[in-house]
Design a protein around this nucleic acid. Structure first.
Lengths: 248, 248
DNA sequence: AAGCATTGTGCCGAAAATACGCTAAGTATT
DNA sequence: AATACTTAGCGTATTTTCGGCACAATGCTT
């Protein structure tokens, strides 16, 4: 039993998804935000080492709050990345030095978070030196962060069909079109608006409000809210509205 | 940065699912198999500490092989369980002593595996002191292993709709009824056999063989195989036959 | 005031999916 | 030889879905 590994450092990396009504975006930072002396110009996902007496979800929530100022946001673990060589030697050296630790290996756990992307959020993250990029336009990140991102998107696609998390990406009051755009963006598909409405309303997941969008150069769309009474109990598990609507 | 945790021990625990043509089962062991001196009578999932220069999937594969003798079996990571108090003090003491390590905390990663359950496998695991129990009948396991099992089942349900992994639970040649029983067992539903056949065949996922089941007191059912030519490329991702068939 | 863009609603028919009654066939048991 | 059980498949009535077309409503732009 001499070969048991006991001193892995564990980190979390968060894929923070946002939706602006049109495109699905992810929040990226540059390493220089952590250390101005070490900046190879590459983008990375926000992340951190876990602390003593901290669970991984807590660590992920901490990263999320540091990046966005938000608490109590939907966070889901995706995969764990444990290749002993996922961090190369120079990288490892920097990490040990920066954190004042000693370790042979860093295992990281991927999380994704869903954030409502409004102007306030954009300016907040801008002040933090972070940037929202269209997911479709992200092609290179440092280390294995591109893998973590791809994995998170795959998990998101499945989750969105089976739970009402899509609404975490939308404002409290939203238009039918915004919801349709979101599904189209996440899955890269097109939906027929008339049938989308029919199915959506017959599913009874939306509650209409008396409000309409403003400052648009066409007939303003009515705003809706999620029908939260549907999820009073443990019904969250059984939300499959979007699985039915999207013909997979 | 003094509060960074650097010495978490990492383990894997495997939920090994098997299907006997009727019921979905999971493989359980007793702790006494690891240490005859320490047996509280409770069942647990097979697991192990990860070793140096070993990835988590490799560790899970090692556990699987030790339990079943099988290599190259479908294995999927589910969730990571990182509550600092998930292992109580006496438990922790035993673990440290048994493995000859020193750690304040054990983080575990859940995996599930899918195994064809034939008489040979049952007798093999029996010799190892392990037992196959109906998933529906498992209500108590040591530590947080019940959570790990429940989580694995939830993940399996989703995965089975989106990938052809169901066939990993069946023999190479199987009857339509077996496949139907499997889906019914995993989801706890009933399906109309006539429509099930129509949908299944029109999806073209099966290839018929010239063989039939034997030694049954009724008309023997034809045996089928998975149409592997469907998955020559990367189409595995797009397997949604069962999502269509099961009306969620 | 006219034009434009988009939302929102209704109607309708073709096509597809579904539920289910019914029949025939094949094997072991009695 | 009769019976029991299950596979296998046909056919049809019913329901659901998919889209086309039409048109009213609203508010910005020109």
């Amino acid at each position: 039993m001499s070969s048991v590994q006991t001193n892995s450092a564990i980190s979390v990396d968060c894929v923070i998804f946002g939706f602006d009504g049109e495109n699905l975006k992810a929040l990226l930072v540059r390493r220089r935000n952590a250390d101005p002396l070490y900046d190879d110009g590459g983008h990375k996902l926000p992340g951190a080492m876990i602390r003593e007496n901290e669970t991984l979800p807590e660590a992920a929530a901490r990263v999320l709050e540091a990046s966005t100022g938000l608490k109590d946001i939907y966070l889901k673990q995706t995969s764990i990345f444990s290749d002993p060589d996922r961090v190369d030697q120079s990288e490892l050296q920097w990490i040990c030095q920066y954190h004042g630790i000693k370790t042979d290996r860093v295992v990281t756990v991927g999380y994704y978070a869903l954030v409502k992307l409004d102007p306030g959020m954009v300016s907040y993250t801008k002040r933090q030196g972070a940037v929202w990029m269209n997911v479709d336009d992200i092609h290179h990140l440092i280390m294995d962060h591109m893998d973590i991102l791809s994995d998170a998107l795959t998990v998101l696609q499945k989750d969105i069909l089976w739970s009402p998390i899509a609404f975490n990406l939308l404002p409290k009051k939203f238009t039918v079109r915004q919801l349709q755009n979101l599904l189209e963006a996440v899955f890269g598909i097109e939906l027929d608006n008339r049938n989308f409405r029919k199915k959506l309303f017959s599913a009874g997941v939306l509650v209409e409000t008396d409000e309409y969008e403003k400052h648009v150069s066409h007939k303003p769309a009515r705003l809706y809210q999620l029908n939260k009474s549907l999820f009073s109990k443990k019904n969250i598990v059984n939300f499959s509205t979007f699985a039915r609507i999207i013909n997979i």
